[in-house]
């Protein structure tokens, strides 16, 4: 029976995640802290968790006029809905000239199109429930070359699941040609598990099947060492104090100059991380449940995680 087999392997399903983790450990009143990326960013800055620098934000249609002033001479910047989900509505630019903006995919976007996009975003096209939204204009991450050979365009980002302050599982999501540069696994990005203890990459998963090489670049995924892994674990663990959310997905990108930066937090992190690690997450969650101690500092919690969650290589 497949059900029993999944249960034995500790695979977490959506129903179980929603009722036993999210509703039990993530009080709804805390959601706005992570759903609104602007608030998350401010909170992180107060707590000294590094984030991409915020250039400015737009709150009303009228503010769209300020866009040029915010961007100024900067060639690289990212436009992002504050309440977006799944990477929808994010535009990345690497240059502009004569009122036309060049997106990182090489497409030229006119001011007309861009301001329409901004207005749509402000009207809530990308926010849950269509509520009025805000637009963030922020630093465009210049990726650390470590994943250059295993990603195609877009943003390779690292997802760490933090349960009650303990990092329990991690993966890196690598964009492919098929995912149009997006790091969403169900849109065709590759998920590669990361050993929590060492920061070394494991096997890759594409469309729910194991893959060992990137479909576009042909480079093997496994055995890469994520630089600054201890810092990443530290950042992830501290996001627990930042938000108070017991079951949290922390998204981190590696900047070539500034090191790991926290991009966003997720109060309902997906389940694909289990596939990328070819392991169910429940056993680790139960282990944390048994040892969790709110007195422990982030550093002590990381030590526990590193000792316990060493993937077999």
């Amino acid at each position: 029976m497949i059900f029993a087999s999944l249960r034995n392997r500790g695979v977490l399903g959506i129903n179980s995640r929603n009722s036993e983790l999210i509703s039990a450990f993530n009080p709804r009143r805390l959601y706005p802290l992570v759903d609104d990326k602007l608030r998350t960013k401010k909170l992180a800055m107060e707590h000294g968790v590094p984030v991409p620098e915020l250039y400015g934000s737009l709150s009303t249609i009228h503010d769209i006029h300020d866009f040029h002033a915010i961007v100024g001479d900067r060639q690289d910047f990212v436009v992002k809905p504050a309440n977006g989900s799944g990477g929808d509505g994010i535009l990345v630019f690497d240059g502009h000239r004569d009122g036309r903006f060049r997106s990182c995919t090489g497409l030229m976007v006119s001011w007309d199109d861009l301001s329409h996009h901004l207005a749509n975003t402000l009207n809530g096209q990308y926010s849950l429930g269509g509520h009025p939204d805000r637009v963030m204009i922020e630093y465009r991450v210049r990726f650390d070359p470590v994943f250059d050979l295993v990603s195609y365009l877009g943003v390779p980002d690292i997802r760490v699941i933090v349960f009650r302050g303990y990092p329990v599982m991690a993966m890196v999501r690598l964009p492919t040609r098929a995912s149009h540069g997006k790091a969403n696994l169900h849109q065709g990005a590759v998920g590669v598990g990361i050993d929590v203890a060492t920061g070394r990459t494991l096997r890759g998963v594409l469309d729910n099947e194991f893959v060992d090489e990137h479909p576009d670049t042909g480079t093997s995924f496994s055995g890469l060492n994520v630089p600054g892994w201890q810092t990443i674990l530290m950042m992830a663990a501290r996001c627990y104090e930042l938000t108070g959310l017991g079951y949290l997905g922390v998204d981190i990108v590696l900047d070539a100059d500034r090191g790991p930066l926290m991009l966003e937090l997720n109060a309902r992190p997906g389940l694909n991380i289990q596939i990328a690690n070819s392991e169910g997450i429940m056993h680790r969650l139960r282990e944390v449940q048994a040892i969790a101690d709110s007195e422990q500092s982030a550093k002590e919690r990381i030590r526990e995680s590193v000792n316990r969650f060493r993937s077999p290589s």
């Binding site: 059900f3 695979v11 399903g13 009722s19 036993e20 194991f210 596939i275």
Partner: peptide
């Protein structure tokens, strides 16, 4: 509303995880 078991679609989604030890 309190059903916490797997969804049928998850049997397919997690099928790589249900195949023995790989």
């Amino acid at each position: 509303g309190s059903y916490t078991g797997y969804r049928l679609s998850e049997l397919r989604r997690f099928r790589v995880l249900s195949r023995g030890s790989s």
